[in-house]
């Protein structure tokens, strides 16, 4: 067991090394663009308020009635914060493909050496999955740190009387993206991560099918992906099938989705293990 864990840690550390430059870039871009948003957005508001008060000779209260008070939500809903967040999501999604295909790139395929290592082959699978998740959670952690600091910056730039009084947590709670990707609401966060984990397991299985059976495997993989989506979404269409929208309680639909996603995840792991151990070609 100790040996098993050690080799898994070695592989994970190795994969983390390989992703680190890409991850540092994503983290850097996130911090940089966020910082611009924390400074530029409130300053633009303050500038607009001051200009309006000067040109129209009105009080700050009248200017607030015209432009509204400023909240941290006004910053979080700008592209300065949304763009890096979506860049991080899409970047890691692409890296989830790259993390496998990079092994077969070039003439001296690294996959040969990797698969010949004297460790269970599923450790390769797990290490790649762990690294993707470490990257996801690192982005989340850095985003949280960035938002916490950003909230202080915004509060320092905008005069207190012009602020709406919305707290950081309140601003995140009503945000359509951050309320899902950050641990603001445990339900949304766990749902997003549950769906994400199942998606990663299916994606890895599709990649391994393609690597195992080439073009035929690609067709099989796509078919597998479509079938898993249909199975996971099946409970949502149950009321239509029974022609009664109140036949199933929403909690039952949710429980069924969780069960089916777990089945999909476990099935994907079993298929991947079979492919890695028996079918994959170097």
């Amino acid at each position: 067991m100790k040996q098993y864990m050690k080799s898994l840690l070695n592989l994970t550390a190795f994969e983390l090394d390989r992703i680190s430059k890409f991850l540092y870039t994503l983290l850097g871009v996130t911090l940089l663009l966020n910082l611009i948003g924390y400074i530029y957005t409130p300053m633009r508001y303050v500038g607009r308020m001051n200009e309006y008060m000067q040109t129209e000779s009105v009080t700050a209260q009248q200017a607030i009635e015209r432009f509204g008070s400023f909240s941290f939500y006004d910053v979080t809903s700008t592209l300065w914060l949304l763009a890096p967040a979506t860049l991080g999501i899409s970047g890691l999604l692409l890296y989830s493909l790259f993390i496998w295909y990079r092994e077969w790139m070039g003439k001296n395929t690294f996959a040969y050496r990797l698969l010949m290592l004297p460790v269970p082959r599923m450790q390769i699978f797990y290490s790649k999955l762990f690294v993707i998740y470490i990257a996801i959670f690192s982005l989340i952690a850095v985003q949280i740190i960035s938002l916490t600091i950003g909230f202080q910056i915004v509060s320092a730039i905008v005069p207190d009387d012009w602020l709406s009084g919305m707290t950081l947590v309140q601003a995140l709670n009503i945000h359509p993206l951050f309320t899902v990707i950050l641990p603001v609401s445990s339900f949304y966060f766990l749902s997003a991560n549950g769906i994400g984990l199942t998606f990663m397991l299916v994606l890895f299985t599709v990649i391994l099918l393609e690597r195992s059976y080439s073009f035929k495997g690609l067709g099989l993989g796509i078919a597998y992906g479509v079938v898993t989506v249909l199975i996971a979404a099946f409970p949502v269409f149950l009321p239509d099938l029974v022609q009664n929208y109140y036949f199933f309680y929403d909690s039952e639909i949710m429980a069924l989705i969780i069960v089916l996603m777990t089945v999909i995840g476990v099935t994907s792991l079993l298929i991947s293990r079979h492919l890695l151990n028996k079918k994959i070609t170097i």
């Binding site: 550390a13 983390l16 959670f137 690192s138 952690a141 850095v142 950050l182 641990p183």
Partner: peptide, 17 residues
Amino acid sequence: KLISFVLLCVLTLSAFG
């Protein structure tokens, strides 16, 4: 590196909680 990233995640998420 692995420990640093894991610590970053665990500490930040706990502190945020």
